[in-house]
Design a protein around this nucleic acid. Structure first.
Lengths: 126, 126
DNA sequence: CGGTATCCGACCGGATACTG
DNA sequence: CAGTATCCGGTCGGATACCG
């Protein structure tokens, strides 16, 4: 690669690392359940069970798994109230809210093109 | 449900159908490969093999599967040139380009918070 | 070159049961 | 109530082979 001569190998290695990291983050986030959780969480603070009721169809397991992943990436904050029974609340962090704005766009897109897509499907399924 | 009295059952059924359709579309689109394909396709027209080189890591099978799905939903247009060897090109439709704008947002988000997320991960993994 | 079909291992994801 | 662990069927997804 020609650019290597001008860029230096250390810098190039950094760019490669950043790229693979970006792909990794993208793969974490770009899945149905994660996006739905972030969307429904919104500006609110919800308990585990409330969140499960909101994101209908999600199982206990998938909810915990995705919440851990989102917490690890710093998109949601998890606060445990040491009471009996335990009370655990989830809120979007600033990065989480920033991501949510783009997900809002996707949801808006879905509704805008709803009938358009439905028609396209019918045409295709013949 | 109280609202049923004021709304009429037909209209309510319509809303329920629209909602489940929206979720279905969202589930189609909100997956790693579909989003990456749309993002890399961009404003260009690419052949099958070019697209596979762009979206690195995707297999032959996943690419065809997702392209069919996107075509069915009317997000990409597929044009076959009847030559030997065959030449098949893919372009985003208007709805596809509209969706891409929101995906651009997600990609931008990823790069903006890259180091932030990396740090959060290190904190969590201890 | 682009698409379909088949095989098969891997992991996703639901159900259930058990802890603090 | 929230979380973890285990089980296990179903689907995902890669590899390969073959057709137009």
């Amino acid at each position: 690669m020609v650019t290597k001569q001008f860029r230096g190998m250390a810098e190039e290695a950094d760019l490669a690392r950043a790229d693979s990291l970006a792909r990794e983050i993208f793969s974490d986030v770009a899945n149905k359940w994660a996006l739905l959780i972030i969307e429904f969480l919104g500006e609110r603070t919800l308990r585990f069970s409330e969140l499960r009721d909101e994101v209908e169809g999600i199982s206990h397991k998938m909810l915990t798994q995705n919440l851990r992943m989102l917490e690890r990436n710093g998109l949601v904050e998890r606060t445990v109230h040491p009471t009996v029974p335990p009370r655990v609340e989830y809120t979007l962090t600033e990065p989480g809210r920033a991501l949510r704005r783009t997900i809002d766009g996707m949801c808006g897109w879905t509704h805008t093109y709803l009938t358009h897509i439905e028609a396209s499907r019918r045409r295709f399924d013949t």
